[in-house]
Design a protein around this nucleic acid. Structure first.
Lengths: 342, 342
DNA sequence: AGGCGCGTTTATACCGGTTTAGTGGCTGCC
DNA sequence: GGCAGCCACTAAACCGGTATAAACGCGCCT
């Protein structure tokens, strides 16, 4: 019993052909008689041969892997509901193709450039996902300089050499605001994410515009950082305003759930005294008390679509079109209610 | 300007030596004059040469990467506070060594064996982390059959050919129970994780034993699944018991936070009517209302230690010792309080 | 019969490293 | 002076695939 795994040479000699023929058969290239192909594939099968990734990598200069760099503080990353599901979606298209996902976590303070450089120079991946897109994102230039194919999650402003996979945050935000307006709210505040991020400003802008369309102005916009701690602070500042808002729209669930806690801590009852809405529909949103009204995106689909698009780009079948995903949907729960005139 | 990156041959000719000499110099092997080594390294530096991972991989039959297979439903994974921090810790030891982390997410229903098989047969990784250890875990046999080095997170029962990195959950659980006992609670219930998992039973057993040491028996133990939805259900069942518990110890924060919501939904005030404690100290624990008493582990350190240990094993410097991490610490917040006699 | 063209297959270089056997020059010793 | 022994280094095989040019067999045409 040979312990070593079979190589292409073993298959070749078993099928009575040359290495080259086996390679041709495996890759389904024309120029071999069908009978020979069958014989080769049968031999490969009997030996349980699978081509060595490492050898193929060296030979064709591909990694057969995609990369994801997550730039985020571990503590913060901890409760981000987006990435795990996104990654699962990515995985679902990589696995059948025999590709792998290489993950790199860069702490917030560190040099994220180095992360991409490493991935590129080490030849670990054939392309990367560009998440948490920022305004004037320096990574776009970096990646085109490195010659590393990429797909952006959401569309950067300005021109980008990369295809984008887009999940528009605006309709969801608009739906939240309209929902609150229908409930009679007029003094609505917003707790935004860091304005450096494209998705954070998309949400704030949709918030402002939807109010404006109804002839209203936001009671206040607190810029925060998507963390629970940030959500608490922003909420506290909002609750002491002379014109206290009757509803707060948070840019994500974590801030919303923390804000919910802060409001209760301050002696308010949600939704009687204050309506609260989030964004993401994370697992806990449904189960906190009261259940959080929020907006449900589909990060799994997002991952699938991004992986598909990136692979298209890498396989180089011409220009790759942007992909637009169905926008996030409003999920109404108990944390928002009719305004009771107090 | 040559666009192509330099190879070892370029360095060799620039330094006026053979390829072999460059390889020797790079790997710090004896047999070269110091002057020659210096000259070679200088040449490499000037050319900006870095050895090709792919070529090295093929040549030395190593992947220079470690693997992590996460078997979990994407939705559930979404809010797991453990993995992101764990991964960040792993990354912190891999990055300086030029290793990569290959991630594989297997949905709960699917064949997890295939995940490990793929990683091993594709030669993607030099070793894997075995997380969410189960009783009689079949993956241990699978991996030793595949010949893939591994490190187990926590110690499997029975003999294991792999080193273990251990974070004992029992002291933390014991501390929670003792804390509740000191507060005067006598009717304490537990919401456990799936008994298939080693860490789930470790927590339940510590719960039972600590009560027993005080001459008490649990009012009830509800077996659940670590999810928020499961936490809700278990909590509902506990709250309708004739002998309603005055305190509930949950096996993780997600169930605890959901349980908190369920209790409030049922009209109870926490902690006046019911004390609640979790496990993990996830980000939201501090910020829900009332702040959740819980147990804080350090998944980042866990990741560091696991990566170190796995690398030791792979580098094959003899037998590798198990590593025991400092146990998780009790964090007291507002969700637990003195028992007010009702 | 010789030459042409076509479909099929092989031989071999190549990817970029590592590794081993081997070579040349120098010293030291008898 | 000749030879063993060591040091520093080189040449070439090797890892396991892919790619390309050349060779082969065969029928067909003239």
């Amino acid at each position: 019993m040979s312990k070593a795994r079979p190589t292409i040479a073993d298959v070749a000699s078993r099928a009575g052909v040359s290495k080259g023929a086996v390679s041709f058969a495996l890759n389904g290239r024309p120029g071999l008689a069908q009978a020979t192909v069958d014989r080769i594939l049968a031999a490969a099968d009997e030996l349980g041969w699978r081509p060595s990734n490492r050898a193929r990598s060296l030979s064709v200069s591909k990694a057969f892997a995609l990369g994801l760099v997550i730039t985020r503080d571990p503590a913060v990353l901890s409760s981000d509901p987006f990435f795990p599901a996104f990654i699962a979606g990515v995985e679902s298209v990589l696995a059948p193709r025999g590709q792998a996902l290489v993950l790199q976590v860069v702490s917030a303070g560190e040099d994220e450039e180095a992360g991409y450089r490493r991935l590129a120079q080490d030849g670990r991946v054939d392309g990367v996902f560009l998440s948490d897109l920022r305004h004037e994102d320096p990574r776009i230039d970096l990646l085109s300089e490195l010659g590393l194919p990429a797909v952006t999650l959401n569309r950067p402003e300005g021109t980008s050499p990369f295809p984008a996979v887009i999940l528009d945050d605006r309709p969801g935000t608009r739906a939240v605001v309209e929902h609150l307006l229908e409930l009679g709210h007029r003094r609505i505040a917003h707790v935004a994410g860091p304005p450096a991020f494209v998705h954070a400003t998309a949400r704030s802008e949709a918030f402002v515009q939807t109010l404006a369309a109804a002839g209203l102005e936001p009671v206040a916009i607190e810029v925060s950082d998507f963390t629970a701690a940030g959500g608490i602070e922003a909420t506290k500042r909002l609750l002491v305003l002379p014109q206290r808002p009757t509803a707060i729209v948070y840019a994500n669930d974590r801030m919303a759930i923390a804000g919910l806690g802060a409001a209760q801590q301050a002696g308010l009852t949600v939704p009687d005294d204050l309506s609260v809405a989030g964004f993401d529909d994370s697992e806990l949103a449904e189960f906190v008390h009261p259940g959080l009204t929020t907006v449900r995106a589909d990060p799994y689909r997002f991952g699938e679509a991004a992986a598909h698009t990136l692979n298209q780009l890498i396989d180089g079948s011409g220009d790759v079109a942007d992909v637009e995903l169905p926008p996030a949907q409003l999920v109404v729960r108990r944390s928002t209610a009719h305004l009771e005139e107090s």
